[in-house]
Design a protein around this nucleic acid. Structure first.
Length: 765
DNA sequence: CTAGGGTTAG
């Protein structure tokens, strides 16, 4: 067989395993038994001591070279320290300098040195140079071949790696366990299970699965193909498990969403007295982060310091990320600032961490402050000359969606196009979400249509966002499209679908989908689904059905559900049900002051004054954390925050007040009426004759004064809007001819020409 | 042969 198989994937997959086997018949022993001394350590002249030569290690690299210049009659091993230095510095120019020198002194006759050189070029990412050196060699051994294959795998060229692997067999070299390991790795990068299986068959035939190098590679191969059971089986079969075996199985668990199993493998590993290395620790720290176990994470972190890995970058990145996500922000910053040569991953981690804790910060205020900080960090990162990648873009787009920062989001959109990152599904999905959350459903759906591939999350994002914008038909249509394409919806998809139905009070459809979710897709309903359905029943005046559903839940209903039922009971004059629900709500010790408002209204309606006083007392206790009303606006990458009746605004206070008073006057001519404070929590101020400005009104005024004419005004608010402001802002959208977008606690409001996209449920409540 | 950072809801 003179010619090599073609490079195409089809051809490599179609490779006949017998062709592999035939080459080794009669040669089982070297394959199964012989362990090569290593890829970059010597195979020949192993007795010669590579380090006992010139003392170049203490010298500067260039000086080292010049020492060599002066020397005469150098042996090949004189190059070893220099080549080692090259490996660490990873500079092609260094490698070239040494290479030239090697040619000059004739050391190129030495296979060990030349193999090392191939490895150096490969580590520098210079695969063309590596290949050239390789091709120029008069002879090669299996280590040389394996080195080249490894280089291709590490430089993301698995097709070439496989091709070289086949060339090697062709040339009559027998793979070692290392060669097979890296070849398996190439298969997993290629997503070629077929070829992997062929190599596996070969491995099984020669009974070398128990070998650590091969077993480890198999373990991670199965893991990458989502078969954790096989990975575990392979791991268990390895006779002499090393640290790498343990790390491989732990990371396999991590990869397949089995964080808890990963952690138990880790503890088993410690029981077996196997010492974790920096790879293990990094992976375990990330598992602690997944399960949000700060206490375990702290222990693992101190273990890594004790083991001498405190300076290892991945370890530090993981620890930093863990502390940030568990709320130890100062601790995380300490690590961040101490990292000297921070990598892109470091920056990505601190940005992503901030974005994620926005969801579960103890109060909204600190969440948005965290978001502000993340935006600053991102801008600082750009300023320092680092190039953002897929990870950065997806996090920052999500950040923009949470900050309702469209201007910033648009700039990032442009960047993703320029860098080619937009073709990534995750980035694409994040972009869709960003435009929608900034109030532009049109651009969101354009971005969605332009995606070349879509995942479950992409579809879910778009469906949910149609629902948020009140586009029920589009949401449901898209859901059907998604099913047609064969993508299986998940729990969250149905949250979007039910929300879409709820928005249009399509009760029957909602119930159909609810049933479909359970019967056809075997998805257990969670609290979110019940909340949406109860809400829909209440809005439709079907209180009894709401209560029936609550009784059927196999969860303890939460405060939002009782609160919705209370509202329904009050509106539809069912005091008994209302009082019952109130009792249940109070038992839950509501942590959210907004759920108490319906409670107060109901007690007042049935004249239960003592109960009312008690609830008010309860609310006063909650007040400091929850009731403070804040709004934010993001302009040119800066976030400005506002409180009600702002005394010290970031802008010109007087100008903002005057503008608001003027607008208020003109709104009245449009029929706006101030109906007293509808917020019961502001009861003290309810009698004050002058109108109180809520925080979002200041934010709008600031936006009007500081953005170009006709630019949309985009705001976030940590509490729910009151009806008063809602009416007023409808007028503002006419008076100022601007689109005004407000993301409040509960929903997205998009005010255009006096109308809001939220569907105006206010009248009902 | 083994490691760190990303997207959807509430």
């Amino acid at each position: 067989m003179a010619c090599l198989p073609s490079l195409s994937l089809a051809a490599t997959v179609g490779l006949d395993p017998s062709s592999l086997r035939s080459r080794v018949s009669g040669h089982v022993s070297p394959l199964a038994v012989e362990k090569p001394p290593g890829i970059c350590c010597g195979t020949n002249n192993a007795s010669a001591s590579p380090t006992a030569t010139l003392e170049v290690e203490s010298l500067d690299f260039r000086e080292g070279l010049s020492v060599l210049e002066d020397g005469t009659g150098l042996g090949p091993f004189d190059y070893v320290p220099l080549l080692q230095e090259c490996m660490e510095r990873r500079l092609v120019s260094d490698a070239e300098a040494v290479h030239a020198h090697i040619i000059k002194t004739g050391a190129r006759e030495d296979l060990y040195v030349m193999t090392f050189l191939v490895n150096v070029y490969a580590q520098c990412g210079a695969m063309i140079a590596a290949r050239k050196v390789f091709d120029g060699l008069p002879r090669r051994n299996v280590v040389t071949w394996t080195t080249l294959i490894t280089g291709y795998v590490h430089n993301s060229e698995p097709e070439l790696a496989i091709r070289v692997y086949l060339e090697m067999l062709e040339a009559g070299s027998y793979p070692t366990n290392y060669t097979l390991g890296i070849a398996l790795n190439a298969c997993s990068s290629l997503r070629s299970l077929e070829l992997g299986k062929q190599i596996h068959a070969y491995i099984v035939k020669y009974r070398i699965e128990q070998d650590a190098s091969i077993g480890n590679a198999l373990c991670s191969l199965y893991s990458k193909f989502g078969n954790l059971d096989y990975a575990v089986k392979t791991f268990r079969g390895i006779t002499e498990k090393n640290v790498i075996s343990w790390t491989a199985i732990i990371s396999a668990c991590s990869e397949n969403g089995e964080a808890a199993s990963g952690l138990s493998f880790f503890s088993e590993m410690l029981w077996e007295n196997v010492e974790p290395n920096e790879f293990t620790l990094t992976c375990v720290l990330s598992l602690c982060c997944t399960v949000m176990s700060l206490s375990l994470g702290k222990q693992v972190h101190s273990l890594s310091i004790k083991s001498g890995y405190q300076l290892n970058l991945p370890v530090r990145n993981s620890a930093m990320y863990l502390y940030l996500k568990c709320g130890l922000v100062d601790e995380a910053y300490k690590l961040f600032n101490e990292i000297e040569s921070s990598s892109l991953v470091t920056w990505n981690a601190i940005i992503a961490g901030h974005v994620q804790i926005m969801d579960f910060a103890s109060d909204n205020l600190s969440a948005y402050q965290g978001g502000t900080r993340a935006l600053e960090i991102f801008l600082r990162m750009i300023h320092s000359g680092l190039k953002p990648d897929l990870f950065t873009f997806s996090s920052v787009l999500t950040l923009c969606s949470k900050l309702v920062a469209q201007e910033q989001g648009e700039q990032i959109h442009a960047q993703t196009i320029k860098t080619g990152c937009l073709s990534d599904v995750v980035v694409g999905s994040a972009l869709v979400n960003m435009y929608s959350k900034c109030g532009s459903i049109r651009r969101a759906s354009k971005a969605f249509v332009e995606m070349s591939t879509r995942t479950l999350i992409s579809w879910t994002t778009m469906i949910t966002n149609f629902a948020i914008h009140g586009k029920t038909q589009q949401a449901l249509q898209l859901f059907e499209d998604m099913r047609l394409v064969g993508v299986k919806p998940n729990q969250i998809t149905f949250v979007g679908v039910l929300a879409a139905c709820g928005r249009s009070l399509m009760v029957d459809e909602a119930l159909n989908y609810f049933e479909m979710m359970q019967k056809e897709y075997r998805i257990k309903p969670v609290m979110d689904h019940f909340e949406l359905l109860v809400d829909m029943f209440v809005m439709s005046g079907r209180i009894d059905e709401a209560f029936d559903l609550i009784k059927k839940m196999h969860y303890e209903p939460n405060e939002f559900i009782w609160s919705a039922l209370i509202t329904g009971a009050r509106l539809h004059r069912n005091p008994e049900l209302g009082l019952y629900a109130a009792e249940r709500l109070i038992k839950l010790e509501p942590r959210d002051s907004e759920t108490c408002v319906p409670l107060l209204k109901m007690y007042r309606a049935v004249e239960r004054w003592i109960d009312m006083l008690n609830v008010e007392k309860l609310m006063r206790e909650l007040q400091p954390v929850k009731l403070r009303d804040w709004s934010w606006i993001c302009i040119k990458g800066k976030v400005y925050s506002f409180e009600p009746n702002e005394q010290f605004c970031p802008g010109n206070n007087m100008e903002m007040h005057m503008l608001l008073e003027d607008l208020l006057g003109r709104a009245k001519t449009l029929g706006y009426e101030f109906s007293g404070s509808s917020e019961l929590m502001d009861n003290e101020d309810a009698n004050i004759s002058s109108r109180i400005h809520q925080s979002e009104e200041f934010a709008i005024a600031f936006g009007l004064l500081n953005t170009p004419k006709a630019a949309p005004i985009q705001i976030i608010k940590n509490t729910s809007m009151c009806q008063n402001c809602h009416d007023f802002i409808k007028c503002l959208s006419i008076l100022t001819a601007r689109k005004i977008v407000i993301q409040d606690r509960k929903r997205l409001h998009k005010f255009v020409d006096g109308k809001c996209s939220c569907g105006d449920f206010w009248g009902l409540l």
